[in-house]
Each structure stands twice: as C-alpha cells, then as structure tokens.
Design a protein around this nucleic acid. Structure first.
Length: 122
DNA sequence: CCAATGACTAATC
DNA sequence: CGATTAGCCATTG
C-alpha cells in the first residue's frame, strides 16, 4: 500500500498505528490497547501511545478518538491539549463527562466489528 | 548495545 | 477515587 502520507515517516510501527486509527468511525472511540492488539502486539500499549503522540497529522488522523482503557480521555498534544481533545470528541457526538467518555463501552470501536454479525443473537 | 523516555495498563494502598 | 509501583514495548540518544 502506498503511504497515505506525502513521504515516508519514521518507523513502520507508527504508520501501522496511524493506519489503524484511520478506521475509527466518527462518533466512536477506541483504546490504546485495542490498537496494540490490532497490530498483533497487545503488550505494546506504551509503544502505541508513543506513536500516537508522535502523530504529525494530528487532526487529520482521528487520534483524538483514542482514549484510555478506563474511558478517561488520556492526553493530547494538539491544540490546547486535553481540552481540545474533549472538544473534538464532543463535536463528533461523543458525550464527555468529568474528563471521561460517557457510555464509553457502547461507543468503543473494535477492529473486529467488520465481521458480519450473523444472526447469532446471544 | 545500553539507558532513558512516553498521548498506557493493571494492581495495591 | 486518588496516588504509587511495577510491567510492558518501541523509539531515541
């Protein structure tokens, strides 16, 4: 696949992280752990966090849709930091309360959702 | 190669 | 619920 970016970036690992974030639908959020797992390295949450933080395409990539595993906003390097991150999420339709995502688990995006949810109900 | 760092996570106090 | 500790992995000097 050709880089969706203009030129090659630091490391392939980071590209994978940013690429994964591209798939996050609007109005939803994901966690660092989910991305790490999606990349096949569920234990590399720290590395994922570093890669996301180093995202040079900040608002271009929905990096603001990435929150902590407990639903808290986490951190942000763009705009005014966490404040901007919350504002962006609210614009996406995500409810934020006390620095945490409301109904976090309900709008949590999983990279497995692309599986056709067969009629198997529970 | 070794040491330090970081937009994290889980467990403990 | 807030503060601390330890574990974790990729990046950087």
């Amino acid at each position: 696949m050709k880089n969706i970016f203009k030129y090659e970036i630091g490391t392939p690992f980071q590209q994978s992280v940013w690429e994964a974030m591209r798939h996050i639908p609007k109005g939803k959020v994901t966690t660092y752990g989910a991305i790490a797992k999606y990349l096949g390295k569920p234990g590399a949450v720290r590395a994922v966090g570093t890669a996301v933080g180093r995202n040079p395409f900040a608002p271009e990539i929905p990096c603001h849709r990435v929150v902590r595993s407990d639903g808290s906003i986490g951190n942000y390097s763009g705009g005014e930091g966490v404040k901007t991150k919350i504002e962006l999420l609210k614009k996406e339709g995500v409810e934020i309360s006390k620095g945490r995502v409301t109904a976090f688990e309900k709008i949590l995006y999983r990279f497995e959702d692309q599986h056709c949810t067969r009629s198997a109900g529970s």
